[in-house]
Design a protein around this nucleic acid. Sequence first.
DNA 1: GCCTGATTTCTACCA
DNA 2: ACTGGTAGAAATCAGGCG
Length: 781
Amino acid sequence: MRVTFWLLDIGYEVRDGQPEVWLWGIDEENRRILVIDRGFLPYFYLTIKEGENPEAVLSRVQRLRGELPLIRELELVDRRFFGRPVKAIKVVCGNPEVLSKYSRKLGKVPGVGMCLEENIRYSMRYLIDHGITPCGWHEVEVEKAERPSGLQVEAVYRARSPPKDVEKAEPPSLRVLGFTMVAYSRRGTPKPERDPVVILSVATNSGKEAQFVAEGGDDRPVIEGFLRYLREFDPDVIVGYGSNQRDWPYLLTRARGLGLRLSVDREGGEPHTSVYGHISIAGRANVDLYDFADELPEVKVKTLENIAEFLGVMRLEERTLIDEVDIPAYWEDPDRRPLLLKFSLENLRSIMGIAEAMFDYALQLSSLVGIPLDHIGTAAVGFRVEWFLIREAYRIGELVPTRRPRPYRTYVGGMVLKPRPGIHEEIAVLDFKSMYPSIMIAKNISPDTYVPPEEPDPPCGVYVAPEVGHRFRKEPPGFYKEVLTRLLRAREEIRERLRTLDPESVEYRVLDARQRAVKVITNASYGYTGWLGARWYLKPVAEATTAWGRHIIRNTIEMAKKMGLEVVYGDTDSIFIRYDPEKVERLSKAVGEELGLEIKPDKVYVRVLFTEAKKRYCGLLPDGRLDVVGMEVIRGDWAAVAKEVQEGVLGILLREKDPKKAAGFVRGYVSDLLARRTPYRDLIIWKTLTKPLKEYKVRAAHVEAARMLMQEGWELTLGDKVGYVITKGEGKLYERAKPYNLASYDEVDLDYYVEKQVIPAALRILKQFGVTEREILPPTS
DNA sequence: GCCTGATTTCTACCA
DNA sequence: ACTGGTAGAAATCAGGCG
């Protein structure tokens, strides 16, 4: 019989010496099923050294089979490595756990060059080799299998052949469970060995909600209630916010301490830590929405409430917010405890809303890249690109290089023009479309087309990168060219289809998420080529790409100037010119013809303001909105007071062109600030801890604030944002910084905020217009 | 020991 | 834990000064 199913999770185990792949899915009747495939064995490759006789090397390897009993098969195969044909021995083993040991051993056999692909996980290997993707539909020939006890599925099958991809975009209807918890500690970060989980809130996408509350200090009913609820609902996806780092490890430790088993997976087992420290739950997808917070760079401090606010899930003004420092007081006070419950419920609703908003994208990214849904969020951009490449490499018989440590060497990047300071009217921004990917395609730049300096030009000829001189063969099409062409074409096709669809339809949402995922991977591909950790790293590839980029932008500027177009600014792949529709049209045509790349107007500013600084400007859009780039307004490490003032100044200057009025606005703002009419939260400065505290070489305000928090029992980790205020007193700035939640308004040094935040942010713009510091300070100060 | 300008460290941005 | 180019603040260093 045949089953069509959507792949939710994948795992494997070795039973009676036989590896089995477990495919957890949902079939077309919306039943939860498990397909077990015993028909696939793990393997790795040994390449044959140049000049060696492959057969001879193979027989040398054959002779070691006695010592390595789990070898099932040895086969000489033809593959490619960096584009060159290679002979390799495919070593098929009976157990995935022996791959690394066996490869180390066989790597020493005379005549063997490299061991490759021995560290590709068995489950990923399975997916790649069969061309099947997580969060996609597949068809498989199966027979009914007896159902091992304790599995929470409706049917178990044994695969009779490998599954095959089925063309179908829309996911099945999934059961999603969201949860969030509050732990109680008298002081400082709660410790699971000591402090109970006092509130645990759960919700389902079918609209149910529940809260489990500790009785006194006893959280046994909380955890038991959660487990019952979870097993009863039997979710496919479990979402939380910070659940990988905080909630799951906490619950696991609590459960252990209480002698409970946190059996939440579909095998009756507990969550377990997997690669990159993410938590895996067999048969379900555990998704931590915090791992997707980086996809929203507009949100500077990535708290649950800020993300929810940004996505329009829950407005901050309507929110019950309780700082973690105040949680114990709320729990201890019977009058305020209901507020804490409300807070938790709102957190939960935010989580459900964010899941709703991000889910399509997460599914599409998972299926595009091929990393399972529960992993995709935690995988860094470089690894997302890499897994995508590994799939493509398999398709063309290219062996995957091993990641290895390399020395850091810089190379030159994009070109940035000096802006012409002041306000310019009617400025068009012309952008090259996907500049770096397009260059790599046009010049066939790829690790497998690179011609090293000592080699002569191949007969097909080469493209020579300007300035740096790296050569890339014109034929055949390189690995990157093929991959990027496919990506760009895929996105175009999706976008064309989108134009025919109703934006409210499910298909539209799914495909729109798909094209965003494709775009993200395409845009990250250049960065990947210059990443030292990349398996396919080759410095000349990255270096040649940026060199061509500079060449092209330089030529574009020349052409624009020759046409009499005034260039006021440019950065990497864009130029800012006075808008002249006819000339702009001619320019993009000429650029397309002469340089082979597409350039087109991205937007036209009614007015745009530059200071002398690069990468910082502000444009007024035709609809009246401001487009602020690079300035304090959009930076996360300035107090809100500075950002608000600067935005006000920019608005007045660009809309009304009235520096005097702008100066008056600043004076008024400063008076309000000094009169303490500004909310406390607008004085908080947020900065990230980018390394362990010990490694800081100089004393800095946010690091000192972090130390104070830790002194009070709060745990902080790398990557955390520290919010602090500057207080009155003597000495260095770092001596006056205090965590915002340990300080009060009375202590705050308002003069600091005027002199070092508001005035610099305002003056940066206003001094272009001859306004001096004296003119923006209130008369009294 | 104090002042000042130069340099280093740090963060977060743009493309 | 994708790249290089860039701005800007604060800490810190280095050298002059008598």
